[in-house]
């Protein structure tokens, strides 16, 4: 089992272009769980370890494009605080809820998206933020919105020869926030999550829902209502109820050992209402 430590993306994608079974390893917080639990690494399998590719572990704010470019292997800890937290608070809030400090020191947004769990905290934020995944292969590169890249539970449109190298997140003015429900106060997998991003400049908002469907869901019907309520201060109980109902209809949850479908549907509506309420308060505070 050769382990390769490419030092740049070119080398990595060349390795991925070769035949044969392989695994990509970055933070290890998902892949190593599978290996420890018996998904044995095969004889001829190659491991492509991304830890030495500095490009994947750095981020930059491209002010000309208004885009935050985050390397796919930047660990959660770095996303949860500092400058990124100021530029992109919802991603930071989501990052802070991932696992434990140990997990946040290792796990990455790239891994979260590639794993494609509907409970992925970072994935939910990435969808609400309209993040675009930059994907490289030996054949070239392509840019795919995260919302389109993830196609189902643990399913993505990534080819075996492809690598997510970064995410481009268009920065917006306006409230953004992430909230999730878990049965424990820390180190818990979301049983319902929601991320709201209000783009005041374009007069739109995006609400992404986690853990209530096969993948992260958007709320195309609720979003215009949310925008209206927040930007036009048309909020009242009835309007909020309408949003909650709409969000709950958008949810497609299942029953499992973590929660019932009924509860997940209920909870995601509550989270949506709270995020919208927080957005309204934040706007009022800014205006005073």
């Amino acid at each position: 089992m050769p382990v390769f430590h490419p030092i740049d993306v070119d080398e990595a994608v060349e390795l991925l272009a070769r035949r044969g079974p392989r695994r990509i390893l970055a933070g290890g917080t998902d892949e190593m769980v599978r290996i420890n639990h018996g998904a044995a690494v095969g004889e001829g399998e190659e491991i492509v370890c991304l830890n030495n590719i500095t490009e994947l572990r750095s981020w930059a704010f491209e002010s000309d494009r208004g885009v935050l470019v985050i390397g796919a292997a930047v660990p959660w800890t770095e996303l949860a605080s500092g400058a990124i937290a100021t530029l992109c608070p919802s991603l930071a809030e989501a990052a802070r809820t991932v696992g434990s400090p140990q997990i946040r020191n290792a796990g990455t947004l790239g891994g979260n998206v590639a794993t494609a769990s509907p409970a992925g905290d970072g994935l939910c934020a990435a969808v609400a933020l309209d993040a675009v995944a930059v994907i490289r292969s030996a054949a070239g590169s392509r840019r795919v919105p995260v919302a389109e890249l993830v196609t189902g539970p643990k399913q993505t449109g990534l080819g075996p020869e492809e690598l997510i190298t970064s995410f481009e997140i268009p920065l917006t003015e306006g409230y953004q926030g992430y909230a999730k429900v878990g049965v424990r106060n820390a180190m818990v997998i979301s049983i319902a999550g929601a991320c709201l991003v209000v783009d005041e400049q374009h007069g739109i908002s995006r609400l992404a829902l986690g853990s209530v469907g096969p993948t992260i869901l958007r709320c195309p019907e609720a979003e215009p209502l949310i925008t209206d309520v927040i930007l036009n201060r048309s909020g009242n109980t009835a309007r909020l109820d309408e949003i909650v109902d709409s969000v709950r209809s958008a949810a497609r949850p299942i029953d499992d050992h973590r929660a019932t479908a009924d509860y997940r549907r209920h909870a995601v509506g509550v989270l949506a209402r709270r995020l919208v309420t927080r957005a309204i308060s934040a706007r009022e505070e800014n205006n005073t």
Binding site: V3, L25, G27, G28, T29, M32, V33, I35, N36, I47, C49, P75, T77, P101, Q102, I103, N105, A106
Partner: peptide
């Protein structure tokens, strides 16, 4: 960095 050794190859 503090990490879980079980998740490091």
């Amino acid at each position: 960095n503090l990490v879980c050794a079980c998740l490091v190859m």
